[in-house]
Simulated assay, not measured.
Amino acid sequence: MTGESATQCSDDWRETLDRYGFVVLDDHSLAQVAPALGRPGTSALLTPHDRHRADPWSLSGVYGQDAFPWHTDGAVSARPPRWLVLRAVQINDAPPTELLDPAPALLAELRRTVLKVTDRRGRVRYLPAANHEPEPESGRGDGRWRLRWDPRTCVPRAGVTIDEVSARAPTGTVQWHEGRIAIVDNHRLMHRRPPVPRESERVLERTYFWDE
């Protein structure tokens, strides 16, 4: 499903989000969608940077304006954000955001994959690349999977390899223009950014939301 077709479903945006794992909105503000998403975190502006001018911990610090790999946000966190909301602030000849909803075969491989997860302080944990989300009251899995993937900080020790995931083609694409909002299920989908030409402008506002 492309970003354009997701936009056509924007009147029932929450239904579209639950069905496809993302939705693209041209006629909503962040304030309008926020109450349906849960607890918000702080917002940040994302702009392409040369790797030498970026935070070494960030994706830009590793890849600069080259292509970003498939990843989920907050992969090193014990509780990554559920929803990733992106709003286009300034766009000029900028690349899209690509999305990957793993097919059943890949999801099965991710379930068997153990990651060596290293946080900013150098602390190491071993975590699954995909695991069931617990129900709030019972603590048992509810059938919904949570992905964890970031080649910089989450290195597979067994199971699927980084190259195998990198080779997967997008299952969805968000084309950007100013004012457009994309909501992505960060537990279900991976995302990435193609290379950014040096003459293009791409400023996105990012806000995370956690389930209550």
Rank of each mutant, 00 (worst) to 15 (best):
V114S: 13
G122M: 07
P195I: 00
V165N: 06
A44C: 12
P197K: 06
P80M: 08
I183D: 03
R148E: 05
C154D: 07
L45Q: 14
R193A: 07
H49Q: 15
C9F: 12
R148D: 00
R19Y: 04
R79N: 13
A67Q: 02
P35W: 15
L100H: 14
R51W: 14
S10T: 02
G41Q: 06
A44V: 13
E4R: 12
A34I: 01
P96L: 05
A94D: 10
D66I: 00
R202V: 08
P136S: 08
N131L: 09
R168A: 14
F22Y: 13
A167D: 14
P156N: 01
P136V: 03
V184R: 01
P81C: 10
W149I: 10
D18L: 08
S10W: 02
L46A: 09
L37V: 05
H177M: 06
R111H: 15
A75H: 02
G74C: 09
E98G: 13
G143V: 09
H132L: 15
L59I: 13
V114T: 15
G179F: 03
P35K: 13
D55N: 14
R157Y: 02
D163Y: 02
T161G: 13
I183V: 02
V160S: 03
A54N: 05
S166P: 01
S5Y: 07
I91T: 12
E109C: 15
N92M: 12
S77N: 10
Y63F: 15
P95V: 06
R79M: 09
R82F: 03
V124S: 04
R19Q: 01
P96R: 10
A108G: 12
L127I: 00
E135N: 14
G143P: 09
F68M: 09
E15F: 10
H28P: 03
V165D: 05
P81M: 08
M1D: 11
W70H: 06
S77F: 09
V62A: 10
N131E: 14
H28N: 08
A34R: 13
R19W: 04
W13N: 02
Y208H: 15
L115W: 07
L127G: 02
Q175E: 12
P40C: 04
P128K: 01
K116Y: 03
Q90M: 12
V117R: 02
C154P: 03
P56M: 08
P69G: 06
Q32G: 13
W70R: 08
V23I: 08
L17D: 01
S43W: 11
H177Y: 08
T2E: 05
R140T: 05
R123F: 02
C154Y: 07
A44Q: 15
S166K: 10
S10D: 09
N186S: 00
R123I: 10
T173F: 00
R198N: 08
E109R: 15
V114L: 13
R188T: 02
A36N: 10
R51G: 01
W210P: 00
A167E: 15
A182L: 01
L84R: 01
Y126Q: 01
T113M: 11
H132M: 11
R121S: 12
T47D: 09
Q175W: 08
V160L: 04
V174F: 04
